[in-house]
Write a protein that binds this DNA or RNA. Sequence first.
DNA 1: GCGGACATCAACCTTTCGGTTGACCGGTCG
DNA 2: CGACCGGTCAACCGAAAGGTTGATGTCCGC
Lengths: 214, 214
Amino acid sequence: MTPRTTGPIRLLLADDHPVVRAGLRAVLDTEQDFEVVAEAATAERAVALAATGAFDVVLMDLQFGAGMHGAEATAAITAAADAPRVLILTTYESDADILAAVEAGAGGYLLKDAPPEELAAAVRTAAAGRSALAPAVAHRLMDRMRTPAQALTKRELEVLQLVGEGLSNQQISKRLFLSQATVKSHLVHIYAKLGVDSRTSAVAAATARRLLRR
Amino acid sequence: MTPRTTGPIRLLLADDHPVVRAGLRAVLDTEQDFEVVAEAATAERAVALAATGAFDVVLMDLQFGAGMHGAEATAAITAAADAPRVLILTTYESDADILAAVEAGAGGYLLKDAPPEELAAAVRTAAAGRSALAPAVAHRLMDRMRTPAQALTKRELEVLQLVGEGLSNQQISKRLFLSQATVKSHLVHIYAKLGVDSRTSAVAAATARRLLRR
DNA sequence: GCGGACATCAACCTTTCGGTTGACCGGTCG
DNA sequence: CGACCGGTCAACCGAAAGGTTGATGTCCGC
């Protein structure tokens, strides 16, 4: 969507929690230059509404109780020409989630524990066509850049994700069309980077460091 | 706290998310018989405020970003004589969380995706001294009663929790003052009940079925 | 008081996993 | 070009985990 130079910033709230929607509305509607135009309780509904072109910024949750995931919805929305900006607003800050959201074309990534002023500032930043990252998220990305040594590669995250789903090396090798030797090789690297020595503790450490979605 | 027969139901909101607090306030303040007296952004603050005796019902989140856990806070609050009722209001419905909350003396367990009417009804129920359970939570408890065959025992959950934290059988046996044989014995029973055949898949299955906190 | 569920432990065996060493190939970046 | 990294694979060995059988003790309910 082309940034409009006049009128309030028109918002769409997409979250499956009524309480959160009410909270966002309460926090954002008090800003004079914002107008909460609509709410969506599902990702599918958000995609449909966003296509009407009646919004400048979409505030999108990642986890919906059922149905489409927020990242999918973001991709669907931003795929359109003249699409609104999508701001991710979620509770979690996992590497997997952040990377998925950025790949889907999100214009920002905020955390739900953010203070209202930070929220408002991020919405204005996104509306102006610039990227808005929560400090904690920005910090995580900086960390990832600063110390790539301990950052897991995409392939390693892929393997670790399957480990977290309970698959054996054998099953992972079949799923990813690899030999068991390769899976073990990846695991050895993962253990070294996370400072652990077993698959279960790797999953625990990765979950604690928010490297894996959960 | 002795249920008062006159005046509005006085509420304390304990949640680390400003947006959620604003949402709860927006949803609950519209009810004529409710009065949101105060908010707490940490569990510690909630305990301190609850001790003043100025509240009838505390709406308590379980997961705070840092510091005390909601279940601990609930135990601290309900330990006092003349304590207010504590209603758990959280995103998750794991067996571990529910059992911990009930043991801590919670007067109810609600989910954040509940519609406003359900929330209000639960608060009134709690204020009247009765127990309030979200339908999904009630359903889970019923399931647990109906099919005790697949329900994990307390000890089994304890072991599985440690497995989920990445501990080896050796480490678990030391932590719980058991022999490795006993730990393995518990694990065999856990695998049978969950229909899996490895520790990682047991953790995955238990997480998916919300038997474990995450 | 007897059966049953729960918890505890031992001995034994098989399979998987963890750890190492070494190797090959395709990009990328000085 | 040569060094480096990421991804792939093989062979090997010891350690941990998975699986079975069987046994003991406690507590609870019928």
